[in-house]
C-alpha cells in the first residue's frame, strides 16, 4: 500500500513540476513532460534512476553525482529509491512506474535482481537501455554497470585488518545483508582474501543485522561475549561498522579489538579520528552517480558503453582522512 501512495504522489509532483515548467518556458519546451521528452526531437532526453535507497547520505551523494552529469550532458533525470533496503516490492513498483513513463534510459540498482527480471526484459523489448549501478543487476540486460568492485574493496579491508592483528587470531564479521550482491561480495571478498593470504586468521562468526545500528550493536556484543579471544571485527557498511564501534565502546574494549569498516558517515569518521576504529573503505558515490548518467547518455546516443565501469574505492584512516584524495568521497 505504501508503494502506490508514494508513487502516485511522486508522479503527481513530477507531473506538476513538468506542467509548471511548460507554463514558464512557454514555447521553448513543447514537450516538457518527462515521458514524452525521450521521443520529442530537440528536447532533453529523460533518464529515470531507481536507486536502492533515498534517505541515506550515500544515495544523496549518488544523486548529487547524477545531477552533476545531467547538467553537464543536458539531460533530465529523476532519482528515487525505496524507504529501506528491505523493500524489494516498493522498488519493483518504482521501476514499473519509471518504465511507464517511457524514459530514454533507466539507471537501476537492484535490491533483488531476480525480482526485477521481468521488468528488465520489458525495458529491453521497448529498446530502453538499462545502466546498472552500485550493487548492479544480476542479468545480461544492462548495457553497463557503474559500481564499486566490492570484492576487491573488501579484500583491501581484510588486508588492513590482517596487518593490524599481526596476521593471526580470531575475527568476526557484522554484515548488512546476506542476499544483496553488495552484502555477499563484501563478505566473500573479505573471506577470500583471508583464506588466500592469512591462513592463521580464523573467521569465527558472521552475523547479519540489516545495517540497523541497534541490531548490529547487539549482534556484535553477542559475538564478543561468545568469543573472548576475538582480536578484530569488520563491519560491511556504515550501520554494521557503527554497530561494532558501539559494542566496543559500550564494553570498554577500545585498543583491545581492531575494527575496520566500510563507507563513511559522521559517526564512523569520529570513530576513526578518535582511534576506536582503525580505518575503513570508502566508495566513490558521487562518481557512481556521475558514471551512471554518463553511460546512459552514451547508450542513448548509441555509443559503446563499457560492460563494467569501475568507480573505484579508497582505504582511509586517521592519517589520510583529511587528504585531498579522500575528503570528497567521505560524507558526514
Amino acid at each position: 500500500m505504501s508503494k502506490s501512495i508514494y508513487n502516485r504522489r511522486s508522479f503527481l509532483t513530477l507531473t506538476g513540476v513538468a506542467l509548471g515548467a511548460v507554463a514558464i518556458a512557454g514555447c521553448d519546451t513543447p514537450a516538457a513532460a518527462p515521458g514524452a521528452a525521450a521521443t520529442a526531437p530537440g528536447a532533453k532526453p529523460y533518464i529515470a534512476i531507481v536507486s536502492k535507497g533515498f534517505q541515506h547520505q550515500f544515495w544523496q551523494a549518488v544523486k548529487q553525482g547524477a545531477e552533476k552529469a545531467a547538467a553537464e550532458f543536458n539531460v533530465t533525470i529523476t532519482f528515487e529509491g525505496p524507504n529501506t533496503e528491505a523493500d524489494v516490492d516498493q522498488q519493483i513498483q518504482m521501476l514499473t512506474t519509471a518504465l511507464g513513463k517511457n524514459p530514454a534510459a533507466i539507471g537501476f540498482a537492484a535490491l533483488d535482481s531476480k525480482a526485477a527480471t521481468p521488468l528488465l526484459e520489458q525495458a529491453k523489448s521497448k529498446n530502453i537501455p538499462i545502466i546498472a549501478f552500485d550493487s548492479g543487476v544480476d542479468s545480461d540486460i544492462p548495457v553497463g554497470t557503474a559500481s564499486t568492485d566490492n570484492k576487491a574493496a573488501a579484500g583491501e579491508a581484510a588486508k588492513h585488518l590482517a596487518g593490524l592483528i599481526g596476521n593471526e587470531g580470531s575475527i568476526a564479521i557484522i554484515c548488512h545483508d546476506q542476499t544483496s550482491k553488495s552484502g555477499v561480495d563484501r563478505r566473500d571478498g573479505f573471506k577470500d582474501w583471508i583464506a588466500a593470504n592469512a591462513p592463521k586468521i580464523k573467521i569465527v562468526d558472521i552475523q547479519y543485522a540489516g545495517g540497523d545500528q541497534l541490531k548490529s550493536t547487539d549482534a556484535a556484543k553477542a559475538i564478543i561475549a561468545a568469543h573472548p579471544e576475538l582480536k578484530g571485527m569488520y563491519g560491511t557498511n556504515e550501520g554494521s561498522a557503527i554497530g561494532v564501534v558501539n559494542a566496543v565502546n559500550e564494553l570498554g574494549l577500545k585498543d583491545k579489538l581492531a575494527i575496520v569498516g566500510f563507507d563513511s558517515g559522521k559517526a564512523q569518521l569520529d570513530a576513526i579520528r578518535g582511534g576506536v576504529m582503525a580505518g575503513a573503505i570508502t566508495q566513490n558515490p558521487v562518481g557512481i552517480g556521475y558514471e551512471t548518467v554518463k553511460a546512459a547518455v552514451a547508450a542513448i546516443n548509441k555509443q559503446p558503453v563499457k560492460k563494467v565501469i569501475n568507480t573505484g574505492f579508497y582505504w582511509y584512516d586517521a592519517k589520510n582522512i583529511d587528504s585531498e584524495q579522500i575528503k570528497p568521497n567521505l560524507y558526514q
Binding site: 534517505q55 541515506h56 524507504n83 529501506t84 528491505a86 540497523d212 545500528q213 541497534l214 550493536t217 557503527i242 558501539n246 559522521k266 559517526a267
Partner: peptide, 15 residues
C-alpha cells in the same frame, strides 16, 4: 534509542 546510538536515525524503526 537515540541516547544509546548517540544519534537520531530517521530511517530506522520499521519492523
Amino acid at each position: 534509542i537515540a541516547a544509546r546510538l548517540n544519534s537520531a536515525q530517521p530511517g530506522q524503526g520499521l519492523g
